[in-house]
Amino acid sequence: MSQLWQWFVDLIEAGLELSRSATGSAGLSIILFTVLVRLVLLPLTFSQTRSMQRMQALQPEVERIQKKYKNNPQKANEAIMQLWRENNVNPAAGCLPLLIQFPILYALFIAFRDFSIGSFLWIPDLGKPDPWFVLPVLAGVTTYFQMKTSMTTVQPQQRTMLVLMPAMLTFFAWSFPAGLALYWVTSNIFSIVQQVLMNRRPAPAPAGKGKAGHERGVS
């Protein structure tokens, strides 16, 4: 293990110990730690959400392009990608906040080998798999709804991720420490609430040059 990675794991362990000293509970310490992580990631999540909202605002133009080039899918894809670039839209933005948490999950998995973990609610030991498989199911269900609420439009490639990602998380949580599943469920719930609140805000208007630039690029 590299020195940098060990430093990251040590930082995770320190965060868990700090949150447990504040809560007096192993389970609550993981929940508090998760909330702190999500607050740190909030600026990135906000940026990605605005990108997805711009994609929604551009959907009528995307549909117009698809209709115009219905006999030339390659040309339609090029025009749509150009439109998205001009408006700073990333079609994979909805999945990015999920993907960047995987290093944190792996660091938690390593940290839990040394971190003294206790019981929480129905779980006798958060360092072992949930004996009732409640958290693995919740991990999959909340992952699905987290991704669903973050997708303003669902592209074909996103439909695959919408099924594959929750299934993967359920499978992993089935055999991994319950503390990891608790982290993921808490993170998903945080994301869902955050997304619902952000969706109430008006979407940013597309760049004024978007349509004109598109017309110049594909005409």
Score class of each variant (00 low, 15 high):
Phe171Ala: 15
Arg159Gln: 13
Val141Phe: 09
Ser47Ala: 14
Trp122Lys: 10
Arg54Ile: 11
Leu32Cys: 07
Leu42Asp: 04
Gln66His: 09
Gln48Met: 08
Val185Asp: 00
Val154Asp: 02
Thr153His: 10
Val134Ile: 15
Asn188Thr: 06
Arg38Ile: 06
Met161Val: 15
Ala212Arg: 07
Thr49Ser: 14
Ser29Met: 08
Arg216Tyr: 10
Gly94Thr: 08
Met151Gly: 03
Phe109Pro: 00
Ser2Ile: 08
Arg38Ser: 12
Phe46His: 09
Ile192Val: 11
Arg64Phe: 14
Arg113Trp: 05
Gly127Arg: 06
Val185Ile: 13
Ala22Ser: 12
His214Arg: 02
Ala212Tyr: 05
Leu11Lys: 13
Leu44Lys: 09
Ile123Met: 10
Pro206Arg: 03
Glu78Arg: 12
Ala93Gln: 02
Arg159Asn: 09
Gln146Tyr: 04
Phe171Tyr: 14
Gln157Pro: 01
Val37Cys: 14
Arg113Ile: 05
Pro73Ile: 06
Phe112Leu: 15
Val89Asn: 00
Val37Phe: 13
Gln53Pro: 00
Leu164Gly: 06
Met161Ile: 11
Thr143Arg: 02
Lys209Val: 08
Arg113Phe: 07
Val9Glu: 03
Asn90Lys: 05
Thr45Asn: 06
Val141Glu: 01
Met1Asp: 08
Ala76Leu: 11
Leu96Glu: 00
Leu99Ile: 13
Trp184Leu: 09
Gln74Val: 10
Leu197Arg: 10
Met81Gln: 15
Gln195Pro: 01
Ile110His: 04
Asp114Tyr: 10
Arg216Thr: 08
Arg85Phe: 06
Asn77Val: 04
Pro91Ile: 06
Val37Thr: 08
Lys68Gly: 05
Leu42Gln: 11
Gly118Thr: 09
Thr23Tyr: 08
Asn71Pro: 01
Pro97Tyr: 08
Thr160Ala: 14
Glu61Leu: 14
Pro156Phe: 04
Thr153Arg: 11
Phe115Asn: 00
Glu78Gly: 12
Leu180Met: 15
Thr160Pro: 00
Asp125Lys: 04
Val154Gln: 08
Arg38Cys: 10
Glu78Met: 12
Val137Phe: 13
Glu61Met: 02
Lys70Tyr: 12
Pro103Lys: 07
Asn87Met: 05
Ser25Trp: 02
Arg50Ile: 05
Glu78Lys: 13
Phe112Glu: 00
Val141Gly: 13
Met81Ala: 15
